[in-house]
Simulated scan of single mutants.
Amino acid sequence: MTKIGFIGTGKIGQTIAFNTLMGGYVDEAVLYDIIPDLPEKFEHELRHALASRRLKTEVLGTNSLDDVTSCDVVVVTAGKPRKPGMDRRDLFVENAKIIASLAKELPKRNDAIYVMVSNPVDMMASIFMKVSGKYTISTGDQVETMRMRSFIAKKLKVPVNYVNGYVGGEHGDDAVILWSTVTVKDQLVGDKVDKEEVERYVKSIPGDIIKAMGGTTWGPGTIIEEIIRSIVLNENKVMSIAFPHYFEDEIVHISEPVVVGRKIGPSLESLLDEKDRWHLISATKDFYSFYKESLNRIQILA
């Protein structure tokens, strides 16, 4: 029996929940949101869709956090979304308070693996784990990884399944393509693509989509479902998610290729070339510096 809690039923929360439940591998799902009536009506929508697919998943929509109990996986999308022109880090103070509050309550009723989606996603994962003491991952750079693969496939006019490779570091503008992992038909991509063009695309396309569509939903919603599925079904896929790293006096969440199943690991960081490993170290230091500065602006443990 697999039970998943979805904390937040906004656009991205709805998309992730829909994709997950349509996979047919979840026995129970709880949909929580603070907005009155929203999770209950979303429950009905999902029940209609499940009936069409002949799936017997049981669903509960609720405005009470007390109903989120005994979950194996808890997916957190709660918080304010990124708006046009806004950096993910701009959301830190407002969303950190929300995430810290959830981190104090959810573990009381759930011995789960926590999957953070709320932005700035890596820092929110660190906040949640700092407050709760529970193992937390961030969806990290798996979204950037798929954006990178799709763009290279389009430029080279090859099927996207011919392209492999990963993006690492911190999710967002500071993400870095780990070029030593990028292959096309199992051959290093080399000079087949303009690397600067690929990097620009990976970093600029989210903002372009937000301006035109109001948010990035369909891509991340599908990609994040794959992370959930790999955990629940113990698929042990290699993905670029952010998992806990111990750095100086804090736990920080940085993405690198890692095996994702019921347990997270081992990491493939040792297989990267020296330049890519340097980028990950640099990303960790930068993350830590901003994270510590931001922690001083709030009282998350109060």
Rank of each mutant, 00 (worst) to 15 (best):
G24Y: 02
G24V: 04
Y25M: 07
Y25T: 07
V26Y: 10
V26E: 07
E28D: 07
L31M: 08
P36K: 05
P36V: 08
D37N: 10
P39W: 06
K41A: 13
H44T: 14
L46T: 03
L46D: 02
R47I: 15
H48T: 12
H48M: 12
A49I: 14
L50E: 05
L50K: 03
A51P: 00
A51E: 06
R53I: 00
R54M: 11
L55K: 03
K56T: 12
K56S: 12
T57A: 05
E58P: 00
E58W: 00
V59D: 06
G61S: 12
T62W: 04
S64Q: 03
S64M: 00
S64H: 02
L65S: 06
L65M: 10
L65I: 15
D66I: 09
T69K: 15
S70K: 15
C71W: 11
D72G: 14
D72R: 07
D72M: 11
D72E: 13
V74A: 13
V74W: 03
V75L: 06
V75E: 01
V76E: 01
T77G: 08
K80W: 05
K83Q: 12
G85Y: 14
D87A: 13
L91W: 04
F92A: 00
N95L: 01
N95Y: 03
N95A: 01
A96N: 04
A96K: 04
I98K: 13
I98A: 14
I99Y: 03
I99W: 01
I99G: 12
I99E: 02
L102P: 12
L102A: 13
A103V: 00
E105A: 15
E105W: 01
L106W: 04
P107H: 06
K108R: 14
R109I: 12
D111G: 10
A112K: 09
A112G: 13
Y114V: 10
M116V: 02
M116R: 00
N119D: 11
N119Q: 10
V121M: 02
V121F: 00
D122H: 09
M124D: 03
A125F: 01
M129C: 07
M129R: 11
M129Q: 15
M129H: 11
K130I: 01
K134C: 14
Y135T: 11
Y135L: 13
I137P: 08
T139Y: 01
T139C: 15
G140Q: 03
Q142R: 02
Q142D: 02
Q142K: 01
E144Y: 10
E144A: 11
E144W: 08
T145N: 01
T145F: 06
T145K: 01
T145L: 08
M146N: 05
M146H: 07
R147C: 06
R147H: 04
M148H: 08
R149P: 04
R149W: 12
R149K: 15
F151T: 09
F151Q: 11
I152G: 13
I152P: 15
K155M: 13
K155N: 08
L156F: 09
K157F: 07
K157I: 07
K157C: 12
V158G: 06
P159A: 10
